[in-house]
Each structure stands twice: as structure tokens, then as C-alpha cells.
């Protein structure tokens, strides 16, 4: 029977991977590098088997990549799935290296043929799409989804000989609560068009009027630090698919748009009539955001 393996570092939200695996058919085996609570959540998320490496202790989970790769390489599955989180990417990359297998991201379809795996995925940051035929194992890094539900299966514990060269000495939790933009129905995103940090209040008021989450393009989170990193939408940030996406002062550079391409309705506010985003929106207003944004808030009242 065909086996599909799912790599889990520490995040049990894998229902999208489980459905992908189910579509392919065969037995779904999850290998978990994280702690027991993660393994238990995975065991009840609709997979057929869970292989757990035991408590990681002070070893960061991705330092167990070699042990995970050993286990999966021995099982020799045709398809391996992993969520697109940083630690999961480390497991996926190390395994792809071990197997010499292609590692594909931004995947839209996967199909099994008798002697090959056919995968369609976006490339070059999302500007193009290609379909590849792989005669051998393939590692797929995909959107994760939510925590799934299913009948719990037993957890098979194996002994991992993690390299003792990497140790966690301190973990600091941030005081700000983490937002999950992936589940937001409405998002108001702001970009470099915002001249002053104080004007962020205008955007926050609009978001409140819409009951929307506030997000941003990369420079506001990583360069200026006006918003937290988990609110940054783009190719290396969050990927969102809300019903309504309002982009304020964002020109529509591809690296941003890739992160919100599946939004239902897109509204763009920008002072530059030539901004590329006006070519990819449903409704656009050409004007100064300091005037247009409060006007939108007022119109919603």
C-alpha cells in the first residue's frame, strides 16, 4: 500500500495536508519531532499512524531533522508533505537533501501515476506555474490549514539520537498576542504609502469599522517595525484569503500580492494612479490615504 508521510516539527495544524494525503490515497503516516502534546493532537487529526521521536527536551525540534530524515528514508514513501512553517521547512529540506528529491512549494495539485508523481506548483515567487513529472520521491511544502479531527490512533514512540550540538538555553514569549491572519474574513493592509506612523491610527479605525484585522506589506514590519512580523503579508510572510482585502498605500508589487491573491474582493487606495495594484483590484480609489481612509470609515458608519 502506498504510504504518504507528513513531517511535523511542532505545529499540529495540518488538516490541509491530511486532505491532500487523502486525495492521493494510501496510508497517512505522520512523524512528529515535537513534544507529546503535539503528537497527541496529530494522533487525533485524521492520520493512520503517528511515529513520535520522544520528548525533545532542550533540543530544538528542527535539530532532529537528521533523525526524521533517517526514519522517512527507510520507509521510502513516494510523497512526503510538510507545512510551510520555518521548523517544518528545516525538516523538509534536510529530507529532500537526504533523498536527493525535489522539494516543491506553492503547490496547486498533486497526482499519483503508476511510475511517477505529477505536481503543479507556482514558481518564481508566483509569477509562473509549472507541472513536473517526478520519477521518485517528492517532498511537498504546502499551506498547513487548521488542527483536524479524527479517531485517535496509537502513538508509536521511537528513539531519536538527536545531535547534541544544539541546545535551547532560553525561550522568551512575546507579550503581544499572535494574530492568525489566515483565518481573518476581512483584512485591511497598509504599505509604504503611509507617510507617518501616526497615520496608522486611521487604518486601525477603518479596520475597526469593518471588523477587520490590520496587516501590512514587508517594509512596515521588517524595515520600519511599525507592525509585528506576524502581520506582514507577502511571499516570505503570511498568505491570506479573506472575503474582503483593503490595500492602503500598497503599490501592488508581486511579492506582496502573492500573499493575498485568493482574496474575495480587493479594494485598493493609492495616491499613484499608475500603481500596479489598480490593475488587479475590484474597486480602487486614487487619492491621498489620509483623506480617503477616514472617508471610508465615515461611509461605513
Amino acid at each position: 500500500m502506498t504510504e504518504i508521510w507528513i513531517l511535523v516539527a511542532a505545529n499540529p495544524a495540518i488538516d490541509n495536508l491530511v486532505s491532500r494525503g487523502r486525495e492521493l490515497g494510501g496510508q497517512l503516516v505522520a512523524v512528529v519531532a515535537g513534544d507529546r502534546s503535539c503528537a497527541e493532537a496529530i494522533a487525533a487529526s485524521g492520520v493512520d499512524r503517528v511515529v513520535w521521536l520522544g520528548e525533545p527536551g532542550a533540543t530544538p525540534v528542527e535539530a532532529r531533522a537528521a533523525a526524521v530524515a533517517d526514519l522517512v528514508a527507510e520507509a521510502a514513501p513516494r510523497v512526503v508533505l510538510a507545512a510551510s512553517h520555518p521548523a517544518e521547512r528545516v525538516l523538509a529540506g534536510a529530507l529532500a537533501g537526504r533523498l536527493g528529491a525535489p522539494a516543491l512549494t506553492m503547490v496547486s495539485s498533486v497526482r499519483l501515476e503508476a511510475d511517477a508523481v505529477i505536481v503543479t506548483h507556482a514558481t518564481f515567487g508566483g509569477v509562473a506555474e509549472e507541472t513536473v513529472r517526478v520519477e521518485g520521491p517528492v517532498v511537498i511544502v504546502d499551506e498547513c490549514g487548521s488542527v483536524g479531527t479524527g479517531l485517535p490512533v496509537p502513538i508509536e514512540e521511537v528513539t531519536a539520537t538527536a545531535p547534541p550540538t544544539l541546545t535551547v538555553v532560553e525561550t522568551r514569549m512575546s507579550s503581544t498576542t499572535r494574530v492568525d491572519l489566515g483565518k481573518a474574513r476581512r483584512v485591511v493592509a497598509v504599505g509604504r504609502g503611509l507617510a507617518r506612523r501616526e497615520d496608522l491610527a486611521l487604518v486601525e479605525e477603518l479596520a475597526r469599522a469593518l471588523d477587520a484585522e490590520v496587516a501590512c506589506s514587508r517594509p512596515l514590519a521588517e524595515g520600519l517595525g511599525w507592525l509585528s512580523r506576524d502581520r506582514y503579508i507577502g511571499v516570505t510572510g503570511q498568505h491570506v484569503h479573506p472575503d474582503l482585502y483593503v490595500a492602503v498605500g500598497i503599490s501592488g508589487q508581486l511579492q506582496h500580492v502573492v500573499g493575498c491573491r485568493d482574496a474575495g474582493t480587493v479594494v485598493v487606495v493609492n495616491c499613484d494612479a499608475k500603481a500596479p495594484y489598480f490593475g488587479e483590484c475590484d474597486y480602487g480609489i486614487v487619492g491621498d490615504l489620509a483623506q480617503v481612509v477616514p472617508a471610508l470609515t465615515a461611509a461605513l458608519a
Binding site: 509562473a128 491573491r261 490593475g279 483590484c281
Partner: peptide, 22 residues
């Protein structure tokens, strides 16, 4: 490395948008 071949290329399908700019 495992051999693989590109068997198809396409422009990703974009959602049709209203494009109403005011």
C-alpha cells in the same frame, strides 16, 4: 538527485477582478 522533468508551464490563473477605479 532524483530525475524529474517539467511537463507543462502556464501563467497562474488570476481571479477576474472588477477593475473599477475611481
Amino acid at each position: 538527485l532524483v530525475a524529474y522533468a517539467v511537463v507543462g508551464r502556464a501563467r497562474p490563473e488570476l481571479k477576474a477582478r472588477q477593475g473599477k477605479v475611481i
